[in-house]
Amino acid sequence: MQLIDLAWWQLALAAALVVALAVCTLLARLDIGKTLLVAALRTVVQLSLIGLVLEALFSVAALPWIALMALVMLLMAGREVTARQKRRLGGGWAFGIGTLSMFVSAFSVTVLTLIVIIGPEPWYAPQYAIPLLGMMLGNTMTGIAVGLDRLTDTVWRQRALIENRLMLGQRWQVAIGDARRDAMRSGMIPIINSMAAAGIVSLPGMMTGQILAGTSPSLAVKYQILIMFTITVGTGFGTLAAVLTASRRLFDERERLRLDRLIAPSR
């Protein structure tokens, strides 16, 4: 089966619907029309560019170029994690912790999946490596951002409580334990929920895409299960690592709570 080609004018029809939505939000004074159009425009530009990049990458298929691409993706994800936190650690720590946690979890799980499970030839074949890494990073990024945001926000609000626990002689790990567990849970809940709802409420995007492209549904399902599991593992370990490291950084060597290390939200 051949995938039906899409012409640009056909996309323009979909774009017209987006514009119609923007006009409606304008009439309803939702104050979101401009953001909507800018985001739609960004989708077009960014995806077109990445299309060109991927075309070039697939034709070269050399490890250094793929590694460079992966690095750029990682750094962009790190920036996104930083931007999504209301109060974040200063001095580059928010970016560093987010990026390192994603590197440790998303990268290693992707490489493991490529080499041990899927086994394309060569193992870094970009048709497999780049989409896989993209999905891993996208989800890990969300988990880490949610977890870190929850951690810093909770600690900020519960400062008096945590310090009172320190006054009673508790170790920093105990004093911040509730906030830490809470942050780890909130980072992992979205992916757990999407596993629970997969196939019933939502048809996952990758599976839909494969079926559209002509893959048999049973193979698409196997791939989707693999992806769900690896995403869950990557998100879970990434969130654990990020929240652990960040909570350590919130205390100094004397086990004092150091909220002066957090940057207040701009505005």
């Binding site: 008096a160 626990r165 006054m167 508790q170 086990e255």
Partner: peptide, 20 residues
């Protein structure tokens, strides 16, 4: 000594206590 051991010995009781 580590911070938690010091605070366990020299214990501060704040005016506004917190309960978890």
């Amino acid at each position: 000594v580590p911070g938690h051991r010091w605070r366990q010995a020299v214990m501060m009781v704040p005016a506004d206590s917190q309960w978890w």
